[in-house]
Design a protein around this nucleic acid. Structure first.
Lengths: 209, 209, 209, 209
DNA sequence: TATGAATGAGTCTTCATTCAT
DNA sequence: CATGAATGAAGACTCATTCAT
């Protein structure tokens, strides 16, 4: 009698697939016209579904956008390269660590450039909520960087008087700018060159002397 | 009608004053609610004028916002400290140049933080036009920095193999991030500290060895 | 498949049960939120059935409501107390007749108060059709009352110049008002008191002198 | 004034006049189609104004309806005939009082029958709020009637054992029913006849013996 | 110039109903 | 018969802009 609560796994999969389809369509549409320039009509046209179907999977236009933002932030938070985690490390590895970290980050950003651009260019202008979410996210990243810098200080790779707090922000800003300038466009970026410049700059920047 | 002279006395002044009044109101309103969250009704309420009056001075909501953006960009482009312009300089001055430049920039940004925040947080999400305008603006800034770096290279302050192109972006990014993090908030920023960290980082970062 | 006989045993019973289940759920739901404030989703949630199942048993939301109305009107038309029907009666019985009639009516209304409230409060606002149906129904009741009054006139219980037509409406209105005021609420009504007041009032009201 | 037809340039009306115009149009429209069957489009078409103009004067469709209800209730509460108020009265005046009261009430109801029908037929089905408002309103009326009946008791016009509480409801119901049956239609009602029947019925009904 | 009432195209969202499984 | 995902017509409300005074 009762629809037994949840249904077959197949149904769930289908449901999930439809959700993905809508998210993909929304990403395309938002990337084209921005949040405010994109209407639900655009999204459903792109997804080739009916209006009602859209609202079967998302509560609102704002909701789909939020889902995309969440996904983007999740991707970003996930880029922590495996090698960075082991806390014990020899001084000579500093360059390798930085190089690996930056390469991974830049590649991930480029790989998901549509999502990233949405996050960077649109999210702030929509909602105080997104602003807060982003601030929080950057806070997490900043914390990670600060810890790395402190670790470098312990190992003597970074000078003792380094202002890790502010320098952490500087590192964040450098990546952000590179992303905006080189990673969002259609042209394939020369990531090794970017990493070279970044690492050369930062290694010296944090070093004593 | 009036004397065909150079000055347009009272009428224009009044007109100009009204325009300023509206711009000020718009800045307040937009800062509160963002571009899309702010309605013409909010602006005219803030300015205490009638609806029609608004359209007597600006063609559209978009137009006022553009005027604010133009003003912001003009302020930014204008911060070139007088001392930097003379192209001939001795090597020992590098630190002084950087220090002065960054201090001026950061102070200017903080001074006009409402305008700046509008530019950084809102402009991108409104219009492809603003995106282009910003890109262009950052291009100019980038060019300036690149020239300074090249100059430093000539003088031997910066290593010869420095990737001035990319490093220019890095410098831009650092300032942008500092602005967002420390200059937009209500708390009075510790600009000297920021400048210290910036200059110490950059001087080493661009130096050889 | 089944024996081609006259009766359709289990299947139809099951079908009928399902219909009842939906009607009961609809009554609950409509009573909670009114016709327009109740969605098919509410009804099927209450009935714990799937959307499609609902439309297997009723053509539309309007249709279920109509079924509830029909049921309500049937209940009302059915309250004619057995004793009233025999047309020959002695004058002394007038009070007994009225008392019995009113008691039965008021009790029935209270017993089915959810259905009744639906009829009184919602039906009119939905459809001209329901308005007509109600008018017709009240017409039938009015006719019954008029006949009773005329009978009372014949027997000398009611004065000869009584405007039976209008007075019939008055009687109808009195019951309606009592229903709305005392019978629809959660509090158990003091039906004897209501009947007392009604009968005392009406007997005198129709009497000569 | 308002467009004679379709293409008359709109006139700037005084705020209050425009509000009245919309209320009148809404009354017409709602009377035609009921609350739920009437769309804002119908109202503005009837008023020959633009959509926005409607929302310049009323917050919502619900709001106009509420304004009509308020107006209706105000009219009803205002029908208290002047003669009833003086609290000292001679026994012989009872009939005159009732007659005057009922006549005024019935005439007022008929005069504003469109508003009244809206109140009686639509308001309940829209909102719990309206139900409460109506209950309250009827409460006031009931109170008035009860006081009159008590006054009659004091003067010996009404029997001492009269259940004034319930009888007050009966009186209310009688009027309501007459309104619905005779006063809402297009046909001109024979109000004197209704009053005669009412008064004859009630005077006897409340009297002793 | 100033005013503010009026305009109406634009959009999101709802929800009764259908239909493939 | 049962299910519930999908449909899409419908409708309320917004708000930038215009224009008569």
């Amino acid at each position: 009698m009762a629809a037994s609560g949840k249904s077959t796994p197949r149904r769930l999969l289908k449901r999930e697939a439809r959700r993905e389809q809508i998210l993909a369509a929304a990403l395309k549409a938002f990337s084209r016209g921005g949040y405010h320039g994109t209407h639900v009509a655009d999204v459903i046209a792109e997804a080739d579904i009916a209006r009602g179907t859209f609202y079967l999977h998302f509560q609102s236009k704002h909701d789909v956008f939020a889902a995309l933002v969440d996904r983007t932030l999740a991707i970003l938070l996930d880029v922590r390269p495996a090698g960075e985690e082991p806390p014990v490390r020899r001084r000579a590895d500093a360059e390798a660590i930085l190089r690996a970290s930056y390469a991974t980050v830049l590649e991930t950003i480029h790989e998901h450039r549509q999502l990233m651009r949405l996050l960077f260019d649109e999210a702030l202008g929509i909602d105080k909520g997104f602003r807060k979410q982003l601030d929080q996210h950057f806070g997490v990243w900043h914390e990670r960087i600060v810890q790395t810098l402190a670790f470098f200080q312990e190992r003597g790779v970074a000078r003792a008087d380094l202002d890790v707090e502010v320098t952490g922000q500087l590192a964040l800003g450098m990546v952000e700018r590179l992303a905006r300038r080189y990673l969002f466009g259609a042209r394939k970026p020369d990531i090794p060159r970017l990493v070279d410049a970044l690492v050369a700059f930062e290694l010296r920047g944090i070093a004593g002397r």
